[in-house]
Design a protein around this nucleic acid. Structure first.
Lengths: 362, 362
DNA sequence: ATTAGCACTCATTGTTTCTGAGTGCTAATA
DNA sequence: TATTAGCACTCAGAAACAATGAGTGCTAAT
């Protein structure tokens, strides 16, 4: 009787149950499996196997006279060993191409576009995080006179990210003084990361242009504001209300709780970045997630990099009853398209001369 | 019998019904009115009056054995003639002060802060629109060299709004050429509104610095991008999920429909700006609104100005069963606080020299 | 003109019954 | 020995029904 070993037939049945449940959100009975997937087994045999799978903890019976639904353990096995690749349709590939083709202007938008794309492809909710720019070198830090008493401070990072702010300064500072101090600042800061910058040095230098600490303080605090902005991870969400399409959230209380949580950037940040593994795709099922509000959800996270620099991570949130195969495939597809696209982009603008060099080398 | 004339007693009863319904979201019966508000009338009398009010179209009876609820006509009369001012609590005044005190850095954030504030005070959903900056004069338009082949273009408006973008240019253009062209551009543009600017003039001038059209085109398109950005009205929403607290939206279909609509910026823009009257506060009840999705909602809109310049409009969306008095009072309170605060702000920074000028004129 | 009294209405709530999808077990079958 | 047909059993959810009570409109008394 009850052979409590996980043979390939049990795996096939488990897979069938899970995929059926993912499709229909209703407990799956032996008859359904027997009819739908031709495993060449009668309902009775399947029933026996399902009883075994329940005893082993992979399936759950909501009540005696119902079919089975997967347990978290069941989903885990499915994700780790059973789920198959899911090829994207031509239409979906087109969507990816179109999204990348027209819209990317600067690097900081990439992660937003990618997450919007994935959200559209999968019809789940996405959370995207632009990482802290701590590690990126400053390309330029400049102060530009706008009018008497008003200057623009801007910071450009190596990865083209741009931060700036308008600052009020003493009206007696002349435009040429501003330009001088701008040189000093840029000299000290360009090419370094944030934490390698010494504000004292700048202050000391400033004295040479008849500027005391009080005069440049607004400028320095403007720069600090920019750096602060660059240091903070930014969180975007997309397709939030997609979640309401799933029967799991047809209860308004649940729905409200979910939407509420989505508004907490700190929680989202933690959710997506926690236990991050580089490169790969991570799946957290149900209570494997930190927050109680999504104990019936799964989160699938991927890190996106360009030239070995992480430009952000994207997480998909959906019910535990989620189309794992499709989501994972979509994330990979976007990742790949993004990579090839970026390479082209770099060749096209920065790399104009590089291309010529290459030609010359041939 | 049924005296079909709108005497003050009918008005008092109508008001009582409406305010009860606004509080409890349940049909109001004659007994409740007789007990709750001491009008010195028996339930029977109130019943008669209510029957009259129904015949006149101000009240509706959902079914024979239920109390009455207000009709749109009822709400309209209430808003136009019956609603009383609602003084804000000390706590609420404090909230307003706190919000304004710490957070305002630049003018473009004001409307965002104000709408967040109103959303918090009223616990409804707010939509805020920053108007098109078409009418505002340009204060400065500059191009700054960042590195070979890369320049920063920025536009500052008279009202301190700042727009900018990083642009790739021909690597052979020298930094001093950039500075020259920047002067030309600024000369032509500063002090004018968008539509008064002539790009041809700039192009003609540019030739003098050995720059042809092709060389400055990326710069001009960068500027165009900034202007475009300034021209577009921006829409922000706040407290969207507040709506889900009201029983009118306990149905997930309704809730979903509402959230869906909130995502359409164009609809929101139309909703808030349509039939805009300057200065005052406008109330649109139920089907008076353009969109079918909110036929059971009311929208209350106010325009916010600083020194006769409209800086944005804010709309509150709530169920028709909305606390009209409270919302209108809150909007006015924020408006007033904002005004006095801004005046102080201007005196503090921009206004320094203006004050001196005025003194000189005396 | 107002109000007490009363019969009437009907949404809501609770109770009971019915139905059917799905089960586990046993005995027959390949 | 593994599989399957057959059958009694379970139980959530739908459907049918009854009870409750808040609220009404009307009539007659104040």
């Amino acid at each position: 009787m009850g052979n409590e070993h996980m043979d390939s037939r049990k795996r096939a049945i488990l897979r069938a149950v899970i995929e059926d449940y993912i499709m229909n959100a209703e407990p799956v009975g032996s008859r359904t499996i027997a009819k739908g997937h031709d495993l060449g087994l009668s309902p009775a045999t399947i029933r026996n196997e399902m009883a075994d799978l329940e005893e082993m903890g992979y399936l759950i019976q909501p009540h005696t006279s119902a079919g089975r639904i997967p347990s978290e353990k069941g989903y885990r096995l499915y994700v780790d060993e059973l789920v198959g690749d899911c090829e994207l349709s031509i239409n979906e590939m087109k969507k990816i191409r179109d999204a990348l083709d027209n819209r990317i202007n600067n690097f900081s938008d990439i992660i937003k576009i990618a997450s919007g794309l994935i959200s559209e492809l999968t019809e789940y909710t996405t959370v995207a995080v632009t990482p802290s720019m701590n590690e990126i070198n400053l390309k330029a830090v400049q102060v530009v006179p706008v009018e008497a008493g008003k200057v623009l401070v801007f910071v450009v990072l190596e990865n083209e990210a741009l931060y700036n702010t308008l600052v009020n300064v003493d009206k007696n500072i002349s435009a040429s003084d501003i330009i001088n101090i701008s040189h000093v600042i840029n000299q000290e800061m360009a090419g370094k990361t944030f934490d390698k910058v010494y504000f004292e040095k700048i202050e000391n230098e400033a004295v040479k242009f008849n500027m005391d600490y009080e005069m440049i303080r607004p400028i320095m605090s403007g720069i600090l504001k920019c750096l602060k902005n660059a240091e903070t991870a930014h969180v975007y969400t997309d397709g939030t209300i997609n979640m309401l399409n799933h029967p799991e959230f047809s209860d308004i209380i649940r729905a409200r709780e979910f939407l509420e949580m989505m508004q907490h950037e700190d929680k989202m940040l933690k959710l997506i970045t926690e236990n991050m593994t580089d490169g790969g795709i991570m799946v957290k099922i149900g209570t494997e997630n930190t927050f109680d509000e999504i104990k019936d959800c799964s989160v699938i996270t991927a890190t996106y990099s360009v030239n070995d620099t992480v430009i952000g991570s994207i997480g998909i949130i959906g019910p535990t009853r989620m189309q794992y195969g499709k989501v994972i495939s979509s994330m990979n597809a976007v990742k790949n398209s993004l990579n090839t696209y970026i390479v082209k982009l770099l060749e096209g603008s920065d790399g104009n001369d590089k291309k010529e060099e290459q030609k010359g080398n041939e």
